[in-house]
Design a protein around this nucleic acid. Structure first.
Length: 612
DNA sequence: GAGTTTGAAACT
DNA sequence: CAGTTTCAAACTC
């Protein structure tokens, strides 16, 4: 009995203490002054949830984000005197902390309608948040603008990173910037096409740049883009690239251009940004850009080369075509170019299509349908292809984290730890030419490869590795990997950012998104516990550890891919992917079984299981 | 630049 | 699932 009493005392004691504090005039004053409420993060998640957006609201918890939002929040209209701002500043920090706590207290902020309360008791101080989570209640202060902002952010998240296209990523950035601009203005983003000149003309864009985010291909097709886009597209320089409306943003994209260019530092920086984007919403970008600029720069200095380059090479189709690219004189803007003659650029043969970007002027394709004006066709085709192979648009190369490589030999710890998703099937090239996708991606062959006479310099199928790798680079890569890996998980499917999920199932790419990948973990192994998940997320959102998540996600993806079981199977690739009707909220068997993460991820990741 | 080789994607 | 065909990039000359 003593124990109970003690517990009671303890429990009560704490509350009392807080209670006192809360009743204090100072506390009340602060409470009133600050428009920011810890709870906010939750609602956000919910909002996203409708979109199936699993991104952690933590993004919004960032002080910066909060600041931005504040301006939109009517409540924020409350006196914001200098002193008030100070208080607000403090509150913001609290909010951030609160978010973290929320995440760690089983209060799911991931997906709306999917909020699950594991029953973990929240401390008194967190009661509000917990309640919010449990009740799925929106924050009091939430305003229409807020919703809009959230929605916008979600949209951004939905862009899945296209595997291999840096262009896509750039486009994504563009979009992001655009979104930001809207955020700052309080306007809801629209689908209107992005002007090609945005970069130079848009103050917002500039501001973003100032924030440390570098973008090269600012223009990209927006999903609802209209013909104007085409004009821009075709009219603009080859450097511009459009991302297919649902096509995502492949993290890989980031890497992309580097190859060819200088990507060095620039790349690395963007890489960080990239990661942030994936994992979070636009705000994250800001966070990364603004708050972590220093870190990013440090990383850049550190040694962007290896990984970054590798990543870039990994899936950039463009790289494949050095000759043609050079011929094109694209230089830094390395948008993909294809030369399709018969596929109409509607098959994976087409690099542009495969990368999730529209063909552009520099392409030499014939009868190209991969253009904004044929958006419907493009999307339909993509959908069809995905139905056949959910991973069709997923990144081809997955960078494994050390953990994954685990058992693998030491060699696996090199950058080459990345592996081609499906492996190659080379018969004559000995995996020493770009015919080999593994080699082309700069990764070693793996057990998944069916190649013959493998001599892949990045790692032979049998496990021997990196014979041809520069040791120095190797080391650098490893370091880079440990410090910042940006697993550029290429996004895979382009998802019509604004299309209803039911209509256009989120593709696997989305799953690649940081959070989603976590879900995958849950789905495939179920070993991933929430605690881990949250911590990771927090890491991600908490300033500089973004890259870590990426690795983990890559791991998730790989697990998924290699895991025949996964619930994912539940979704038949051939069958119409379960139309998760909006449903992100609907309860599916998986959700019930798989646990929160899986549930959350399902909608966005219909099926990762590759067809065999 | 034309032709060949290669292996992924698509098809049966 | 395996075999075949198609396709476009990579490569060679």
């Amino acid at each position: 009995m003593d124990t109970p009493e003690k517990k009671t005392v303890t429990q009560i004691g704490t509350p009392i203490s807080k209670h006192k504090v809360q009743n204090s005039p100072v506390y009340n004053y602060i409470e009133n002054l600050s428009p920011i409420r810890p709870v906010r993060s939750i609602p956000i998640a919910q909002t996203f949830g409708s979109l199936n957006f699993t991104s952690p609201p933590s993004v919004f918890t960032s002080p910066h984000a909060a600041s931005r939002f504040r301006s939109h929040n009517n409540n924020s209209s409350k006196d914001e005197s200098a002193s008030t701002k100070e208080v607000a500043s403090i509150r913001e920090e609290e909010v951030e902390d609160a978010s973290i706590e929320i995440l760690e207290s089983n209060c799911t902020t991931d997906t709306p309608g999917v909020v699950i309360n594991d029953g973990g008791a929240c401390e008194d101080g967190e009661m509000d948040l917990q309640k919010m989570c449990d009740n799925n209640v929106k924050p009091k202060n939430e305003t229409p603008d807020w919703d809009t902002l959230i929605a916008d952010a979600s949209e951004l998240l939905f862009f899945s990173p296209l595997p291999n296209d840096s262009e896509a990523f750039r486009c994504f950035l563009q979009r992001t910037s655009d979104s930001k601009a809207r955020l700052s203005t309080g306007k809801r983003p629209t689908l209107e096409p992005v002007s090609n000149n945005n970069e130079s003309e848009s103050p917002d864009a500039l501001s973003i740049l100032h924030r440390g985010v570098r973008r090269r291909c600012l223009d990209f097709e927006m999903p609802g883009s209209n013909n104007n886009n085409n004009k821009q597209m075709s009219g603009e320089s080859s450097s511009r690239c459009l991302v297919v409306p649902s096509i995502g943003l492949h993290l890989n994209a980031i890497a992309m251009s580097s190859k060819d260019n200088n990507v060095g530092n620039e790349y690395s920086l963007s890489g960080n940004v990239k990661v942030g984007l994936q994992g979070s919403t636009t705000p994250v970008l800001d966070i990364v850009a603004e708050e972590d600029v220093a870190a990013a720069q440090a990383l850049e200095e550190e040694g962007p080369k290896s990984l970054a380059l590798e990543e870039m090479n990994q899936s950039c189709p463009k790289k494949k075509r050095r000759k043609s690219d050079q011929a094109g004189g694209e230089g830094e803007s390395s948008c993909k170019r294809c030369n399709c003659k018969k596929s109409k650029c509607l098959k994976l043969y087409c690099e542009c299509f495969a990368a999730g970007v529209y063909c552009i002027e520099p392409c030499s394709c014939v009868d190209c349908f991969n253009k904004p004006i044929h958006e419907d066709v493009v999307l339909a085709t993509r959908k069809q292809i995905e139905s056949r192979n959910p991973l069709a648009f997923a990144p081809k190369v997955i960078r494994n984290s050390d953990s994954i490589m685990e058992a693998a030999d030491d060699s696996s710890k090199t950058p080459a730890s990345a592996r081609h998703k499906r492996g190659c099937n080379c018969k004559k090239s000995n995996c020493l030419k770009k015919y080999c996708e593994c080699y082309q991606s700069g990764v070693g062959c793996s057990i998944n490869c069916r190649c013959e006479g493998c001599k892949n310099a990045f790692g032979k199928k049998d496990g021997s590795s990196f014979a041809g790798m520069d040791i120095e680079q190797d080391e650098e890569n490893e370091t880079a990997m440990q410090n910042r890996t940006a697993v550029l998980l290429p996004p895979s499917t382009p998802m019509p950012s604004r299309q209803p999920l039911a209509q256009l199932p989120i593709t696997s790419n989305n799953m690649l998104l940081p959070q989603q990948s976590h879900h995958l973990h849950g789905a495939s192994s179920g070993l991933y516990n929430k605690s881990q998940f949250r911590k990771q997320d927090m890491r991600m959102y908490s300033h500089s550890r973004i890259e870590t998540i990426t690795e983990e996600r890559a791991e998730d993806i790989e697990n998924l891919i290699q895991s025949p079981i996964t619930n994912i199977n539940a979704v038949s690739p051939n069958s119409k992917r379960v139309s998760l009707p909006d449903s992100s909220e609907s309860t599916t068997p998986w959700r019930r079984n798989g646990g929160r993460k899986l549930l959350l991820s399902i909608p966005s990741f219909p099926s990762l299981t590759p067809h065999h």
